[in-house]
Simulated scan of single mutants.
Amino acid sequence: MSQAAVEQRRQDVLRCVTEHGPLRIDDLAVRFGVSLMTMHRDLDDLAGRRLLRKERGRAVAFPALTRETATRFRTGTALAAKTALCAAVTGRITSGMTVLMDDSTTLYPLTDALARLEGLTVVTNSVGIARRLSPAPAVEVTLLGGRYHGEFDSCTGAEVARGLSRVHADLALMSATAVMEGRLFHPLREYADVKEAMLASADRSLLLADHTKFGKTATHAHGTVEAYEAVITDTGTPADQLAAVRAMGVAVETAVPAGGGATGAAAAAE
């Protein structure tokens, strides 16, 4: 079996434990049609990445808030959709621009394309994005320092806000943890604050949000999609959620993930 197939099974195991709660390891082995030894290897790998816990013969999920926000969970979620969203906006970014990027893992696939641009300046609160761009000699990266959150590999706080107040960016690229009928939400107030500050520092802003973000809310609202030039999403997003965005007068562009019936990212602005 290929490593890709093994990883897919492990992600399916993680999803199963997340959805159903603590499960016995031998029951998981039966459910996924593998030996007990193989299931232990899968769970050891997931536990080693701190994606779940093994305890007393069971696999146990982390609390919902941690799953919603921690970078280690978000990086591998809806990766094909995130890649398609990033491909859809690549053409809007040109050499010489100053671009703001928040700590959303949705933007991670974009870093390869940005690394090939000359004279680009990227300002971000994400250590993960800064790290991915660091090998690119022609890209200037400004990392907004402040209170570092290891779970999210990024910074928040007054220092980040002050840094943003001194920045004039051509474009802000951002995502949201939850989008409900055009309203945007995040579980943590300090991250909602960063997103609002980024909007204030950019001439134009784009919201990249895959289908898993829609139809949900979280504790802290941070405005609506009306603050953005367009919402970039994928073909799996519910029609009623897209209708709510369009009703606010905001353009919607849908990207087709690889394997989703089309090749590449097909953008349809409305």
Rank of each mutant, 00 (worst) to 15 (best):
L79H: 10
H211T: 08
P22S: 15
A218W: 01
G259A: 10
G96R: 05
A202R: 01
T177N: 08
D170H: 07
D153K: 01
T71I: 05
D26K: 13
D153I: 02
A5T: 12
R246P: 03
L133H: 02
T69G: 13
T77I: 14
A88F: 07
T106E: 03
A172R: 00
S201K: 04
V160R: 03
S201R: 06
R10P: 05
G48P: 07
Y228E: 06
R24N: 13
L23C: 13
L114Y: 04
G21L: 11
V30M: 13
L43E: 06
R147G: 07
R162A: 13
A262N: 10
L199D: 06
M180H: 11
V194H: 03
A200G: 09
E181K: 12
A115W: 00
H149L: 08
I129F: 00
M39F: 09
G96I: 05
P63V: 13
L52R: 06
M180T: 00
E7C: 10
E19G: 07
P238V: 05
V60Y: 07
G163V: 04
A255P: 01
G223R: 11
P257H: 08
G157W: 04
L65M: 13
H211G: 06
T224S: 14
G150L: 09
G21S: 11
A29H: 10
S175I: 01
E226D: 12
G236I: 08
R31W: 07
L199T: 04
G249C: 09
F214Q: 01
R53I: 14
I232H: 04
Q8E: 15
R162L: 14
A251V: 07
D26G: 10
D203L: 14
V6M: 15
G264Q: 11
A209H: 04
H222I: 04
A267T: 11
P187S: 02
R31K: 13
A64W: 13
A239S: 10
G146E: 08
G96K: 05
A227L: 07
T233Q: 05
T90M: 08
P257V: 08
H149M: 05
A59Y: 08
L110P: 02
